[in-house]
Design a protein around this nucleic acid. Structure first.
Length: 942
DNA sequence: TATCCGACACTTG
DNA sequence: CAAGTGTCGGATA
């Protein structure tokens, strides 16, 4: 269930007559609990409070005797079961009053039961939806979206032709107009606080199958788009000429794009009329343009409607982008200005020349928040100077590109609402009302594809500040200073946003083409770039040519692994550099059970440096944000030079070769469980079966087998029907695949895609493994065991290689240069092992390291049958194993620098320096590309 | 031939 | 049901 559906269910519950026995279950049902679950709960209710119902991890709710609500809540709070079951909410009610408490925060609410719907936001975590403050306090946005959603769907049902592409813009425009009208009547923009809704109620007919609501709306819109006077004509005549009826004539002239032309209105069924009136009954004054906007935009998208606004990005997350990008600096300047009227006015002028441009703006979240924050700063200036409070920050300084028409429409509207709300809060209601009509220009939101549009056309560089408003206002002094300085002042542009992330395999042909246009002349590997890269390169171009600054939220892989090599040289070549960054953190939206995605924030400068020192933000364990200044931030988002580690097909250092395990590509037919082995494989064919290790088998000790059939024994294998059957099924599975490579593999259905295996011993390292373990967990498998593609292997290599893999040095390197799956380490041979800088090792070094590796293995052995996961549990790593690793690190680090490194920063610094040295001696002078240079390995048999 | 990736995708307390 | 942590297949070089 989404928030809108829950709101409806809760509202219905609040209106129902109170049923003491049923209420707890009805309450849970309203928050999306399924019938089966409720049935189970009725049977096994573990509550120890009279009239109580307890659901683990969620709620302890009890119906109280009349007047005993407070006492019952106390009983719930005191119940040991509440804590033991980690309940999130305590609720008590007697049918008249409700008292509720959120256990984590201690937040308490008390209200009459019929008002339950006003507080439903408070309980949203029960449904797995993490509500933001505004929704908790006043769920107006959810209610409004719910009602408009109903209306939208009903209009589409009644007017199927409006669902067509060419009609959608008109429907979108209509919805935006309605929202504005609701807002206008509740904020006094229209005289009379129900003027709009009341007019529709009064002048449209309410008869089944026949309403003239569309005509009435058309009349009202006609009035709003027709001036009340022009060229001195008396009001009534000009509107009369347009055919405005008397009942519509009381509406003011609104226009401003939103009402530019009268526009068509679809037919309203009786239900649609009711939904319209129902929506009008809400108090739209309190609407949050950012929250409302991002929720409402889902109604126009067929595939997103089910989630209705669960993608709302909270203000703190948006500020993680906007604050370091420019707001922090403005606030700093505000502090420095103190009471100096001259400085304050200069800062205010600067505010009027700041442009914010979001080339993936959606419903305008980033723009709305930026606008609001800038108005706050301006307000503070006005308070100190006593100047005209009328804002000099024009909405026309806010630029956006949005591909979805409805969202673009909502973005323009959201900015208008944000402006009105800022005016009424920071100046006065009256001033806000007097300034708002006719609507002036809103943000310049262009509907289109950001990667196809020319950003210079959307947001032209150094555009003269053109305003409908006089910047200085009527107060003379400011206006005077204004004109004196204006031609010297420069326009500042800040590009921001959260563009879409799509990895190369999921891009459409059109999207691929867009990446091609931007990158094919810059990078060979453009086909592998994430779609978000397009925004980075366009921003970098804009920044570099026009001195703008940009900051985007992005999937974190943009700063990891192969992407660094694919993307960053193109960016750095444009002369931009990282001005600030936020290292990986989980991006959260309203739905908590949707794990979301791990992101970074990257702020790029223009080709000139304004910040003395770049700033690196990172989230600590307690969610607090740590701020570090650095000389430079590298594309890996670590302090350090702009060094890029390139894929290498062979090791740079004199270490063993590493290859990937074997991909089954079998539809599950070459793999066998132990039971299948006993059931299907005759004893005389057991030589065809080997134990196979994926990451999970290696880390958790699971047992899996496979058919491992070399070409020379195929015929012998095929003699066994059960084996022949499996090979046949593998062949079919491969033929079914759309992949050409897989089709080719169908010719050798007895084989894995690769057949890499060791003869004596195989050193294993899992491809993906948890970031919580203190070391990478490399190890050994038996001589006849094989690997899946989820492991890398060093086949028949020397044991000291295992010592390298098990070291802190290697972990630090992998953590920095390899890719990640969310936060997991994603190990690869080309990026992690082959590039790992190791100094030349003497025979003695190798002997010492071999000993260290053996000690680690022995320490593990001592805890048999503990799995790798048990042994490397960060909480419970055995001391002897920890000591063996310590000795290994000690030995290796002495080889590097003759002592232990002080910390990981020093380790990384040294590794990067060594990498630079090793690659420099390898490539010829002037040659920068190292990835392909075949490096001769000198395995000295010293 | 050999990958590196996932607005992920599963299992599990 | 959210925390924990690695499957699997393939388009691409």
């Amino acid at each position: 269930m989404n928030a809108v559906e829950i709101e409806e269910a809760v509202s219905a519950l609040a209106r129902q007559p109170f049923d003491a026995d049923e209420f707890p279950y009805a309450f849970l049902q309203a928050f999306g609990r399924k019938d089966v679950e409720l049935k189970r709960l009725r049977k096994n209710n573990t509550s120890d409070v009279v009239g109580g119902v307890l659901r683990r991890d969620s709620i302890h709710i009890a119906v109280a005797a009349p007047g005993e609500v407070g006492a019952t809540l106390a009983a719930l709070r005191d119940s040991p079961k509440s804590a033991a079951n980690r309940v999130k909410f305590l609720i008590a009610t007697d049918g008249d009053e409700v008292q509720a408490e959120e256990t984590a925060t201690g937040e308490f609410r008390s209200f009459p039961l019929p008002e339950l719907d006003r507080h439903f936001g408070f309980f949203l975590p029960l449904a797995g939806i993490s509500a933001v403050r505004q929704i908790k306090d006043n769920p107006i946005d959810v209610k409004a979206v719910g009602r408009l959603n109903k209306l939208y769907l009903e209009l589409l049902r009644e007017n199927p032709d409006w669902a067509k592409e060419e009609k959608r813009p008109e429907l979108n425009r209509l919805m935006a107009r309605l929202v504005f009208c609701f807002f206008a009547e509740d904020t006094g923009i229209f005289i009379g606080d129900t003027l709009f809704t009341a007019s529709i109620r009064q002048f449209s007919e309410d008869r089944a199958g026949l309403t003239n609501t569309d005509q009435v709306l058309a009349q009202l819109f006609l009035a709003m788009s027709t001036p009340t006077k022009e060229n001195g004509n008396p009001t009534s005549r000009f509107r009369q000429a347009a055919g405005v009826k008397a009942y519509a004539d009381v509406f003011p002239y609104v226009n401003g794009g939103l009402f530019e032309d009268a526009g068509a209105v679809p037919r309203f069924s009786r239900a649609a009329r009711n939904y319209l009136l129902h929506a009008g009954e809400l108090d739209w004054k309190e609407i949050n343009p950012d929250i409302f906007g991002s929720m409402i935009q889902a109604v126009a998208e067929d595939d997103e409607r089910a989630s209705l606004g669960m993608h709302y990005t909270s203000v703190p997350n948006i500020l993680k982008v906007l604050n370091p990008l420019f707001l922090d600096e403005l606030n700093e300047k505000l502090g420095e200005a103190g009471d100096s009227v001259r400085k304050l006015r200069a800062l205010r002028r600067r505010l009027s020349r700041i442009r914010v441009f979001d080339p993936a703006c959606g419903s305008g979240n980033f723009l709305v928040i930026a606008y609001r924050q800038m108005r706050e700063i301006e307000h503070e200036i006005v308070k100190r100077t006593g100047d005209d409070p009328k804002s000099v920050i024009p909405l026309t300084n806010f630029y956006g590109i949005e591909i979805k028409g409805f969202a673009a429409e909502i973005a323009r509207l959201a900015l208008l609402i944000a402006e009105f709300q800022a005016d009424s809060r920071l100046i006065s209601q009256q001033a806000a009302r007097s300034m708002v009509l006719p609507l002036h220009k809103s943000g310049k939101i262009v509907e289109g594809n950001a990667l196809r549009l020319d950003w210079l056309e959307v947001c032209p560089p150094a555009a003269p500040v053109t305003e409908e408003r006089d910047l200085g206002g009527p107060t003379g002094q400011l206006a005077l200073e204004e004109s004196r300085l204006s031609d010297r002042d420069e326009v500042e542009t800040y590009i921001c946003g959260n563009p879409p992330y799509i990895w190369s395999n999921d891009q459409t042909a059109a999207q691929k083409e867009e990446i091609e246009i931007s990158f094919s002349s810059r990078t060979k590997g453009w086909k592998q770039l994430n779609y978000v890269s397009g925004w980075f390169i366009k921003a970098a171009e804009y920044n570099s040519a026009h001195g703008a600054h940009s900051a985007f939220v992005s999937i974190n892989t943009i700063c990891q692994g192969q992407h660094v090599e694919l993307l960053w040289p193109s960016l750095l070549r444009l002369g931009v550099h990282i001005e600030f960054a936020h290292t990986s953190f989980k991006w959260s939206n309203l739905s908590t059970n949707n794990a979301g995605v791990t992101v970074v924030i990257v702020g790029l400068s223009g080709n000139t440096k304004i910040r003395a020192r770049p700033v690196l933000y990172s989230e600590c364990e307690n969610k607090a944000v740590e701020r570090r200044e650095a000389e430079n931030i590298s594309p890996y988002l670590v302090p350090g030079p702009d060094l890029i580690v390139r894929k290498a097909s062979r090791p740079l250092a004199a270490v063993a070769n590493m290859a990937r395990g074997n991909m089954p590509y079998d539809g599950g037919n070459l793999l066998l469980s132990p039971e299948q082995v006993t059931a299907e494989i005759p004893t005389d064919r057991m030589s065809l079966v080997r134990r196979i290790f994926g990451s999970e088998e290696f880390i958790y000790g699971a047992v899996r087998y496979c058919l491992w059939i070399r070409d020379d024994v195929v015929d012998w294998a095929m003699e066994t029907p059960s084996i022949a059957k499996r090979i046949g099924l593998t062949r079919e599975a491969r033929l079914r695949s759309s992949d050409v490579g897989a089709q080719a593999l169908a010719l050798t259905p007895h084989r894995f895609r690769e057949m890499n295996a060791g003869n004596r011993l195989t050193i294993v390292i899992p491809a993906v493994s948890s970031e919580n373990r203190p070391y990478l967990t490399a190890g050994l498998i038996g001589a006849s065991d094989v690997l899946t593609n989820r492991n890398y292997g060093i086949f028949d290599g020397e044991l000291w290689n295992l010592a390298l893999l098990s070291s802190k040095m290697h972990l630090v390197w992998i953590a920095t240069v390899c890719g990640r799956l969310e936060m997991r380490y994603s190990y690869t041979n080309t990026l992690g092992w082959n590039t790992f800088p190791v100094p030349p090792l003497t025979t003695q070094d190798k002997a010492d390291l071999t000993r260290c590796a053996e000690d680690i293995l022995l320490a593990r052995e001592a805890h048999f049958p503990a799995t790798i996961a048990d042994l490397y549990d960060p909480e419970a790593m055995p001391d002897d194993l920890r000591r063996a690793h310590e000795r290994n690190d000690e030995t290796l680090e002495r080889i590097y620098i003759g002592r232990r490194f002080r910390n990981d920063t020093e380790r990384l610094e040294h590794l990067f320096a060594l990498y630079t040295k090793m690659t420099a001696s390898d490539a010829g002078p002037g040659k920068k590309s190292l990835s392909k240079s075949p490096r001769k390995r000198k395995e000295k048999a010293a």
